[in-house]
Amino acid sequence: MKLFYMPGACSLAPHIVLEWIGKPYEVGRIERGKTREPEFLAINPAGKVPALIEDDGDILTEAEAILLYLADKFPEVNLGASSTPKARYEMHKWMSYLTGDVHPAFYPYFLPQRYIEDKAQFHAIREAAYKQIDFHFQLLNDYMGDRTYMVEDRRTVLDPYLFVFCRWGNSLPKPFTDYPNLHRFMMQMAEDAAVQRVMQEQKISL
């Protein structure tokens, strides 16, 4: 397997999962701004990371789908949902929320130029985006409570995905300690040996 990632992007999550799985894999680093170049578009025409090339040559894309795929492919590592319908529902619910609500909330904050050319409006766009991000973090903070992991009282593929957004939130104006449960979770993840190896590989920090 070969994972294409951009440092600190959502591809950080499957990178961590591959370390947890412990099977041989390779990585391909894509620098910011290079995902729309022909070489990478030949791998993922959507021009996004992550992209995972399987041993048989199949190319998998989209972080949520790759995370769930890896959990299914390596059941012995126990990173997916338990076999009950309710457990699978909880897994898919939070995957959908992180993918469909939390992740897109950051786009206008980090990249307002995607939405408007008038630089004078960038601040207003970021302010509006930040309100949405704060709403999502408050909800997640309340949900996490004293939980160590997102679901089932054990680590799953959800946890590195949430860790990605906690890292992003750590760079926002509001101190991330204002979300104490998320901050505790982020610091706990940062102590994981596999997470540390991946962050060293990607040359990123909290």
Rank of each mutant, 00 (worst) to 15 (best):
K2P: 07
F4E: 03
P7M: 11
G8A: 13
S11M: 01
L12M: 06
I16S: 03
E19G: 15
E19Q: 13
I21A: 05
Y25I: 04
V27P: 10
G28P: 01
G28N: 03
R29E: 15
R29Q: 15
E31C: 13
R32T: 10
R36P: 07
E37Q: 15
K48S: 11
V49Y: 00
A51V: 10
E54H: 12
D55I: 05
D55Y: 10
D56T: 13
I59T: 15
I59M: 09
I59S: 05
E62H: 02
E62L: 02
A63G: 04
I66F: 06
L68M: 10
Y69G: 02
L70R: 08
L70G: 00
K73L: 08
P75L: 09
E76F: 04
N78K: 15
G80P: 03
A81Y: 03
S83G: 09
T84L: 01
T84S: 11
K86M: 08
A87F: 04
R88A: 00
R88E: 05
Y89F: 13
M91E: 01
H92Q: 07
W94Q: 07
M95T: 00
T99E: 07
T99M: 03
T99A: 13
G100Y: 04
D101Q: 11
A105F: 01
F106M: 06
P112W: 01
Q113H: 10
I116C: 14
Q121S: 09
F122M: 12
F122T: 06
H123Q: 15
A124H: 07
R126Q: 15
A129K: 02
I133K: 03
H136L: 05
L139V: 14
L139A: 14
L139E: 14
L140N: 12
L140S: 09
Y143I: 08
R147Q: 11
T148D: 13
E152C: 12
V157T: 07
L158Q: 03
Y161K: 08
F163C: 02
W168I: 04
W168A: 01
K174V: 10
P175I: 12
F176Q: 02
F176N: 01
T177N: 11
T177V: 14
T177Q: 12
P180R: 08
H183G: 12
R184V: 11
M187S: 03
A193Y: 14
V195R: 08
Q196F: 04
M199V: 04
M199A: 07
Q200E: 15
I204G: 12
I204P: 07
S205C: 04
